[in-house]
């Protein structure tokens, strides 16, 4: 990274790191940590779909693999959480590679690729729900061991900072990729696969590389989820909610931009909280699903009116012409 990181990324991360100093309420810290987890999942999606144009509807497959691996490695095999983390990430990469190899070899594009990823996530969900290895529908409880050595923190702020560190790392990685040959190949494949191949781009390899990385990043989000909540079951790990949020955040924030997933996750989850509490206030009780209805409306509105998301809109206004 000869050019170094742009100041904007550093400022954003520094501001986020300072937030817990200003907002100390537990609910706020939990919210911020959750935003980081969703951001990480969304960053994985963004690399594959935002940059590479391969829309996945089933990123839960990677998220769930990470989450379950993290839980099972600790609970079943007694492996330390810090060691389980890279193993779970590697598993995410392997699943990404496998899924990508099959789909891209069959030259699946567009809707077909989206549906295949969804089907994989569903297969994993059903298996995790039925198999005794994953403790079936009961799910897996990770024992409470409050020590930093076990990746559990007495102070919620520390977990947030660790999650933020991962997000920051992926921000830097994404920025770096966007300025390399691989990044250029990825967007070329997104824009026009035929033309890219004519220019010497190995489209299959490029997509495969992207989905492998994407799988590892989104699996990391799953790992953090397990460590944060210390419980996982098939619907949490492989359910459609995370596939949807991983895709919505970049779409709202700006697909194929470095900061899009983060900006989108902030807005998405913030709006979700506001909606939920608004309805709870108006109707005197929590109503399930209202936040998701708002997400659905937002998705359609974004596609219709802000195809480049919020970051795209900001870019258009500040309009720095340099490529």
């Amino acid at each position: 990274m000869r050019t170094g990181l742009p100041v904007s990324l550093v400022i954003v991360v520094a501001l986020l790191a300072a937030l817990p100093l200003a907002f100390t309420a537990n609910t706020m810290l939990n919210f911020l940590t959750f935003v980081m987890i969703v951001t990480l999942a969304a960053q994985g999606w963004n690399l594959l779909a935002g940059f590479g144009g391969q829309f996945s509807f089933g990123h839960a497959a990677f998220f769930g693999m990470g989450a379950y691996a993290m839980a099972i490695l600790q609970v079943r095999y007694g492996i330390n959480a810090w060691l389980a983390l890279p193993l779970a990430m590697a598993l995410g990469a392997v699943v990404g590679f496998f899924l990508g190899f099959l789909s891209f070899r069959a030259q699946l594009r567009g809707s077909y690729f989206a549906l295949v990823t969804l089907a994989f996530a569903e297969v994993f969900r059903i298996l995790a729900n039925a198999s005794s290895f994953t403790n079936g529908a009961a799910g897996i409880l990770v024992p409470l061991k409050t020590s930093a050595a076990d990746f559990q923190f007495a102070d919620r702020r520390w977990f947030y900072w660790v999650a933020l560190a991962f997000v920051a790392l992926v921000l830097a990685l994404t920025y770096h990729i966007s300025r390399t040959r691989f990044g250029a190949h990825l967007v070329a494949v997104r824009e026009n696969e035929e033309a890219a191949r004519a220019l010497g781009v190995d489209a299959f390899r490029t997509k495969l590389k992207a989905i492998t990385l994407s799988g590892a990043i989104t699996a990391t989000a799953g790992c953090l989820y397990t460590q944060k909540f210390l419980y996982i079951d098939a619907n949490l790990a492989f359910g459609p909610w995370i596939s949807v949020e991983a895709l919505l955040a970049p779409i709202i924030g700006g697909m194929g931009t470095v900061l899009g997933p983060l900006a989108g996750a902030m807005m998405l989850l913030g709006l979700g909280e506001v909606t939920k509490s608004l309805f709870a206030m108006l109707l005197g009780g929590s109503i399930p699903g209202v936040d998701l209805v708002v997400f659905g409306v937002l998705l359609i509105l974004c596609v219709a009116f802000a195809p480049q998301g919020v970051m795209g809109a900001i870019k258009r206004f500040s309009s720095r012409g340099a490529p």
């Binding site: 509807f57 949807v244 109503i287 399930p288 699903g289 209805v293 937002l298 998705l299 359609i300 219709a304």
Partner: peptide, 17 residues
């Protein structure tokens, strides 16, 4: 695909609500 996904989210969760 995204618009119809949005519709499905709205229907499903509207019914849930």
């Amino acid at each position: 695909l995204l618009v119809t996904l949005g519709l499905s989210i709205i229907f499903e969760n509207g019914l849930l609500a």
